[in-house]
Design a protein around this nucleic acid. Sequence first.
DNA 1: AAGGTGAAAACTGTTGACAATCTGCAGGGC
DNA 2: GCCCTGCAGATTGTCAACAGTTTTCACCTT
Lengths: 232, 232
Amino acid sequence: MLISKDAAAALEMRRSHSLATLVQQEIERLILDGDLKAGERLNENALAARLGVSRGPIREATRGLEKAGLVKLVVNRGAFVREIGLAEASEIYDLRALMFGLACQRVAARRDPGRLKILLHLVKRMDDVRRDADASAYYPLNLEFHETLIGFADSTRLAAIYASLVKEAHLFRRRALSSNVNMAQSNAEHRRIVEAIVAGRASQARKLGEAHVLAGKRRFLAAIGGPERPTT
Amino acid sequence: MLISKDAAAALEMRRSHSLATLVQQEIERLILDGDLKAGERLNENALAARLGVSRGPIREATRGLEKAGLVKLVVNRGAFVREIGLAEASEIYDLRALMFGLACQRVAARRDPGRLKILLHLVKRMDDVRRDADASAYYPLNLEFHETLIGFADSTRLAAIYASLVKEAHLFRRRALSSNVNMAQSNAEHRRIVEAIVAGRASQARKLGEAHVLAGKRRFLAAIGGPERPTT
DNA sequence: AAGGTGAAAACTGTTGACAATCTGCAGGGC
DNA sequence: GCCCTGCAGATTGTCAACAGTTTTCACCTT
């Protein structure tokens, strides 16, 4: 190896991510961590000083965040952190359900053996931590399962939209949604989805995938919205 | 009226659209009209000179176009007009079908009388021009019908994604797709969709809406792709 | 003649400064 | 006392210049 691994990583970082991209990721983190609260205005000068760059990259980053749905841009007034209400959160769940269902369908239509093995393995690992009632271990696995399946759909556009929706969903006022998932039921749904995929039943896989996300939506609404009627 | 209509329009233009937004629309037009060909690089200096602005707004505009999927950005090399292949075009149809289906479902679930009237009127107008075999009049009406229905779904995110997909689809190499639509069949599908909506049959409306776009996809593939097997 | 090398040109990334716009507040008119 | 007008501060929109990288091409080596 000609250069150290760290140096190579740093170079690769510089090669793929321009400064504006790094700034965007940082602001994204600030927003999702709650350091920048909903409705708050993003002061370009303050951010530039805080991140040690000029206002140019900050501006590019905020434009990117607008397209991602994290901030709202008002001409001559700047960028404001978006606040997502219950109705919008519900819509986002609906859209995510569509995307996930389509992904399941596409994966079932292709049925790549190596990929099926990976999905089965993920379900198995989730079953393991479920038996230990380890919710903190279940959450990242659950996330990985969904993202892996989306990736296996081999559609960059689908993956991009799905990622955008997931980010946007995190804007909802409270994100105490990871703790109270019913691991047993959730993973049972996972298993049925993967079984349908393995069997090549594409349209059933789609239905199950969609229903899985919509079930998550119902649990979410029940936990957060309280006395809310299902909108769909 | 205090000021002339033109002046009011100009002011409203300046109020809602910053220079970068106008530049983005102009570059968008250049791309979709084919003045900027697929794979071609966008020269910031040349565009700035051509549009009479500085490079700043050009850069912001290209970043916006990247998020819209019209160009691909490469660090230190610039922006390139994206070229869309058959597979991607097919994926975009699939996603559009999902969006349109969901929109139909939502409109059917709400059933606003005024809106239903507008949809029925559009179908009627399309039937009129269909009888005259006036394809050039049918195309914009067809577009208006779809956009109106999407708008009636009352989901900004859904509308945004749909608009983005439509724009992206226009990147496909040939867009001789407007001429050879089967107006009779297309509008028969429209009518069935609206009927399902009027009847409040939400899930049926969704199925019909989705099938309508997928039928368009099949016609498109048959006309363009030639001996292509259906991918889904 | 083919391939590699290095400098120059072209271009993008970034910065700091200037112009235009908005917000807040004080002062005057009704 | 309340509302409108106008100035001051702050902030965004735009621009032109500088720095770093990529590409091009002439030149040299083999």
